[in-house]
Nucleic acid binder design. Structure first.
Length: 491
RNA sequence: CGGGGUGUAGCGUAGCCCGGUUAUCGCGCCACGUUUGGGACGUGGAGGCCGCAGGUUCGAAUCCUGCCACCCCGACCA
């Protein structure tokens, strides 16, 4: 298989798909939108998981695990939730297989039909709230701050690796609080946790905002979102945090006794991010040579490639490489020494570029003489010869620099792709030619939002939290508006 | 589920319109040798129910019917 990628500029979608497969992150399983996350891709997810989990714990949350299968009846309790969800679900109807009459096939045993169908969770609100009803009696049981790492399944008609697969991995936080204020604060806190995770670890700048009624999660009073911008000018919803009000408490009858003995419904939030973040990572930083990983999430931060003509040279290089590795590891840097003689250096260079390894060290005969190494940066594709003395400090500094520079680059790109527009013809023009976010006035109605979507395929990604009050006229209808919102075509 | 398209080796493909030797080519894979500072080269080799099931025919990758799968555009969506 050729490892050459289609160029981003030629066909962004094809580039993305090829990159994900060739960089060894994931592949289609051949079963209806199911994705296999390969070890290299999973290593990135594990790092993300570890960092996020740390942040959740630091903010007082605990992990738990709820069942994969949810009785169908649980879904009927929260009408608006069902409205927004539960349409494209996998349903378990039987519990046994048997051998066919001719003995050649395994078939479903029709006698083993379930009384009540079980739904493979598309999200766990219903089953979790069914438990919360039992767990919460008093204000002393609150707040209840629980997170679950799990897989969920949504029977999407059209799927894309990482961005939308039938089964995906995520975390879902579900909390219950005594007051509305506290629940809102929780939703906002997790919103901030996500934004800072994307910034500090993924080097992805996001716009923090709230969703319009139309784009809101089913059953939510307020949906907080972080919106990122991909290199093709399309937006990607990277994470959401919902203030659910008392909707779920009422649906599942979860009341608590207050200090003065009254019964009140609890206030809820939920929040989640998914393996989609890996798609965001790929589409934010990568280039025509392949993946570009921010050092903070790279499974391999530094790779050492030996260049040698014979075994004696390899032995001598290995001594130097092992010393470098030892020093780097002492500093917490993950290093790989690739002394596989089956591949030539040029092949390895291309291979590790494709996989997005932030720094590459090449050591050859010349370096043995000079006490040097060749040091190459993945993000800028630049390389230099540098002395072996002081190499570790230099690398530690460079990893930090690369991390920061990736963020800066993405931030500049994002900022250059927010366009203020006051005219609908211009709106369509910018959307088609430049892409990115369009900052425009909107009259606040669902009808207008839907009409704009119909006309342009752009949706309101969010109402930015930092949007300033500004009198204006809706870009479509001309009706009065008090602040700009952000439109974009989205994944 | 509506509209369009495609199924040939692990991957990408030619052949199909107009049926006829042993199904084409590239990458990858295996063996040996020479190589190794940006995806090496040579020689040899393995690998195919041509998506599945029927039909037409002396003969089907090719024509016909049905089915299945996948891709693209809608609907759905983290």
């Amino acid at each position: 298989m050729s490892k050459k990628l289609t160029k981003r500029s030629e066909d962004y979608s094809k580039w993305y798909n090829e990159l994900v497969v060739k960089a060894d992150l994931a592949e289609n399983s051949g079963v209806r939108g199911m994705m296999i996350i390969k070890p290299y891709g999973y290593a990135i997810w594990e790092k993300m998981q570890a960092e996020l989990d740390k942040m959740f714990k630091e903010t007082g949350h605990q992990n738990a695990y709820f069942p994969l299968l949810i009785p169908k009846s649980y879904f009927t309790k929260e009408a608006s939730h069902v409205e927004g969800f539960a349409k494209e679900c996998a349903v378990v109807t039987h519990y046994r297989l048997k051998t066919s009459e001719d003995g050649k096939e395994i078939i479903v045993d029709e006698k083993a039909k379930l009384e009540e169908e079980l739904i493979i969770r598309p999200t766990s609100e219903t089953i979790i709230w069914n438990s919360y009803k039992k767990w919460i009696q008093s204000y002393r049981d609150l707040p209840l701050l629980i997170n679950q790492w799990a897989n969920v399944m949504r029977w999407e008609m059209r799927t894309r690796l990482f961005l939308r697969t039938a089964e995906f991995l995520w975390q879902e936080g579900h909390t219950a609080h005594a007051t509305s204020e506290e629940a809102v604060k929780e939703a906002e806190l997790m919103h901030e946790v996500y934004a800072s995770f994307l910034k500090n670890f993924m080097a992805i700048p996001v716009i923090k905002g709230i969703k319009t009624e139309n784009e809101r999660f089913g059953g939510a009073i307020e949906t907080y979102t972080i919106e990122a911008l991909m290199q093709d000018g399309k937006a990607l919803q990277a994470g959401t945090s919902h203030f659910l009000g008392q909707n779920f408490a009422k649906a599942f009858d979860v009341k608590f006794a207050t200090k003065d003995g009254k019964k009140e419904y609890v206030w809820a939030t939920s929040w989640g991010v998914t393996t989609r973040l890996i798609g965001a990572l790929v589409m934010t930083h990568s280039d025509d040579n392949g993946l570009v990983l921010p050092p903070n999430l790279a499974p391999i931060q530094v790779v050492i490639v030996p260049i040698h003509r014979n075994d004696e040279q390899l032995d001598a290089i290995s001594v130097v490489a092992n010393n470098i590795m030892k020093e780097l590891r002492a500093q917490g840097v993950s290093v790989k020494f690739d002394d596989n003689a089956a591949y030539k250096p040029g092949y390895k260079f291309a291979e590790y570029e494709l996989k997005g390894v932030p720094l590459r060290i090449a050591i050859g005969p010349r370096d043995l003489e000079n006490g040097s190494v060749e040091l190459a940066r993945r993000d800028t594709l630049t390389k230099e010869f540098t002395q072996q003395n002081g190499l570790t400090d230099k690398i530690v500094g460079l990893l930090k620099e690369i991390q920061d520079s990736l963020y800066e680059k993405a931030l500049n790109f994002r900022n250059e792709h927010i366009t203020r527009v006051d005219d609908f013809a211009e709106f369509k023009n910018i959307l088609e030619t430049k892409g990115g976010f369009i900052s425009a006035h909107w009259d606040g109605t669902v009808e207008t939002e839907k009409e704009i979507k119909k006309l342009t395929k752009a949706t309101i990604r969010c109402i930015a939290l930092d949007a300033e009050n500004e009198q204006g006229k809706c870009v479509l209808t001309g009706s009065p508006s008090v602040k700009r919102v952000l439109f974009a075509k989205a994944y």
